[in-house]
Design a protein around this nucleic acid. Sequence first.
DNA 1: ACCTGAACACCGTTCAAGT
DNA 2: ACCTGAACACCGTTCAAGT
Lengths: 239, 239
Amino acid sequence: MARLSTKTEAASRGRLNRELVLGAAIALADDSGIESLTMRRLGEELGVEAMSLYNHVANKEDLLNAMVDAVFNEIELPLHSDDWKTAIRKRSVSFRDTLSRHPWATGLKDSGTNPGPATLRHHDRVIGTLRNAGFSIAMAAHAFSALDSYIYGFAMQEKNLPFHTQEETAAMAHAMLAQLPVNDYPYLAELTAEHVLQPGYSYGDEFPLGLDLLLDGLEGWLERHPGDRHPQGMLTESA
Amino acid sequence: MARLSTKTEAASRGRLNRELVLGAAIALADDSGIESLTMRRLGEELGVEAMSLYNHVANKEDLLNAMVDAVFNEIELPLHSDDWKTAIRKRSVSFRDTLSRHPWATGLKDSGTNPGPATLRHHDRVIGTLRNAGFSIAMAAHAFSALDSYIYGFAMQEKNLPFHTQEETAAMAHAMLAQLPVNDYPYLAELTAEHVLQPGYSYGDEFPLGLDLLLDGLEGWLERHPGDRHPQGMLTESA
DNA sequence: ACCTGAACACCGTTCAAGT
DNA sequence: ACCTGAACACCGTTCAAGT
């Protein structure tokens, strides 16, 4: 039979490699949550004993690091053809989407401690976009920190919400309102009743509002500090 | 005399209660990291077998929930005597400080899933401050989401940094620069060399910049939507 | 070169038994 | 009412042994 370059073929052949392990680990974390990702369970998923995984992965931490870098690889890089604000907004939305597809990646300490090549490239491109738009080094650092803090934090809050579908949201909000001592928390009760319980509410819709707040603020910075403008083309990169 | 650890204190008392368990758990997580917080280790710290803890705590999740709520209790509530911007800025800085004292609390899913009374009161006060400043319900929800996303995300990034002291930062940045393929990541290299490695650099200093970006943007919202002004004093609360 | 079985030092949690 | 010892069903990881 011709070779099918698929997971099943390789797995059934008893041939394992790092990429295969990584893919199965991400799929398992996506489908069953990061707490289901144990070496034994992952081995089972691949038709192999847990101990075999150590031939392709140094240890679990190495596996988690590689998973996070694979996630960063899914984020759209800012495009040189877009103006900086559009480019950064697009990649920020893509970042959020990616984290919401792989919620376990939010808050895994490894991106800060041991960034992989995809993570480094992503960071480099974002900083480069800001620099070429005229942000000084310090302002680019500030902007980068502010944007990514917001995106990470939003993804984390979204992940930790007790509801994810419209129905769950409504049910949860009703339950909360019923249990909540309304006199103790009048503003929380008001917000739950008249915002969260409104038809069509979805927490994810809050994302662009905060994002545009930051982007508009950054644009204001840039306009107020034209003297910091970075000589265009001093540092260029190929697409 | 040397300070008495909670261990000896609790052991000599021989009487355990929920508050004692909670305090020891928080101290252990602060000092040794959340991964060191196991029921067995916590029991040891309190001079008791792990199984005894279940007399005061339903299970580990219950313990973690209670720990998070205790952390929220440390955050300064917004003051009625301050204007909204000052009040929100102060509580935001206090929030960040608190999370940086208890980094393990960042990203513990429990605040969203099972908020305790301190968490609820904190949220209620923040929303109330915004409402009384003239934010509509929807705008208060947006503002709350944007601010807390930023604060959570900042705390998480700070927690996940591979360095915490000035010396560590410099050493780490030097090591990164040495290892980094500079041609692949020119902007990252530039930012590391000319920003992170500058004397006096501390990542924590980035916090107020992003915070003021958000607060100024929210103020702009408010000025542009005076029609949404909430009747003052309609909902009041006692301090 | 890759995979495995057995083993080690851990986890959270239960439960009957003690005081 | 509170604490304990033993036990259960898990973890990540090592290592000698197999192929």
